Amino acid sequence: MTIGKMKKYREMLQVPVLRPHLPETVWMTDSRILRMLQTYPSIFIKPNHGSGGSGIIRVKRLGRGFEVRCGSSLKIAGRSSVLKAIRSYRKSGHRYLVQKDLRLEKYHGKIFDIRVYLQKPKSKWIISGMAARVAAPHKFVTNYHKGGHAQPLRKVLMSLFQNDHSKVDACFRKIEQLSITIAETVNKWHPIHELGVDLALDKNGHIWIIEANSHPGHMLFTQLSDHTMIRTIMENKRSMGI
């Protein structure tokens, strides 16, 4: 059984060191959608259960209306019809949450986030893989199944921080610390041995926690020319009988 996004969000919210890195996330209601659209330039509406970027709706404020996107489909709606446009993309029987959109940094003009693959082959959590996930052109999600592709994280951060090694190293340390804390937090409530943590950097360099996935995919790491990470992941899977 997969763990719902809201459950993990609320568990992480209890940890003071993680709280500043969690974007506002609430259960979806019509009134909350409208409130968050007044507060933020854009929002994400996500199914509570789901992975691979499927079913995510982005609503973006325009001059006199809203752009509502799901996958490659797009609708322009006014204030009176925006909820109807959102409903047309929702799947019945699914609970949704509303999350503040983040002004993500870009790599060569495309948004990217960071996938950290954590495993617990023995008594402690270790980081088996870290990579940047770069979105396909004109996409607002970076997932592998939606055309996202892997780039070495250090290469992307070096580009972002203009080859400032000390800034890149500091960012790496922060990513590692946050990821281990997230894994320990989720594991406190659930018996897991693997976790995929998705982090993002905004335009101010702040790190945000997008998602903690208890059934992470590993195919992203096969795209890296250096196969050390995918080998480590697969060796640990074998040792854990996964």
Rank of each mutant, 00 (worst) to 15 (best):
L74M: 14
K84G: 13
R79S: 15
L62R: 13
I45T: 04
S80M: 13
K75Y: 03
G52T: 11
C70K: 06
S81Y: 07
S80T: 09
I43Q: 08
G53L: 00
V59R: 01
S81N: 10
V82R: 02
G53K: 00
L83D: 04
S72G: 03
G50W: 08
L83W: 13
G55V: 07
L83G: 03
S54C: 03
S51C: 04
I76N: 14
F44I: 06
G53M: 04
G55W: 00
G50C: 05
R64A: 05
V68W: 03
G78Q: 15
N48G: 05
E67A: 09
S80K: 14
F66S: 05
V82S: 08
K46Y: 02
S73V: 14
S42N: 04
G65H: 10
I57V: 13
H49S: 05
K60I: 13
G63K: 04
R79E: 15
R58Q: 15
S80N: 15
I43R: 07
F44C: 01
I76H: 15
S80E: 12
S72D: 10
G50K: 06
S42L: 04
F66M: 11
G65Q: 10
S81F: 12
R79C: 15
R69T: 15
G63T: 01
G71K: 01
R58I: 06
F66T: 09
R58M: 13
S42I: 02
C70L: 01
H49D: 04
L74W: 11
G65K: 03
V82I: 07
L62M: 12
C70I: 00
S80I: 12
I45V: 14
V68R: 02
I56T: 07
I57L: 08
L62D: 13
S54K: 05
I57R: 05
S81I: 02
R79I: 14
N48F: 07
G78Y: 13
R58P: 12
R61M: 11
H49T: 09
V68D: 01
S72W: 10
S72Y: 03
E67N: 09
I56H: 02
K84L: 14
I76K: 15
R69C: 11
G50S: 00
S72C: 05
V82Q: 06
F44K: 01
G71D: 12
S42C: 07
I45Y: 00
I45D: 08
R69E: 14
K46R: 00
S72E: 11
G78C: 13
H49Y: 06
P47A: 14
G52W: 11
K75M: 11
K46E: 05
K75C: 08
S72F: 03
G65E: 03
S72V: 07
R64N: 14
N48H: 09
S73K: 15
G71A: 01
G63C: 06
L62V: 08
R69P: 04
S51A: 13
L62N: 05
K46W: 02
I57K: 08
S51W: 11
S81E: 12
N48R: 01
S73R: 15
I56Q: 07
S42E: 01
S80A: 15
R64Q: 08
L62E: 14
G52K: 08
G53P: 03
C70F: 01
G55L: 10
C70Q: 11
G50D: 05
G78D: 13
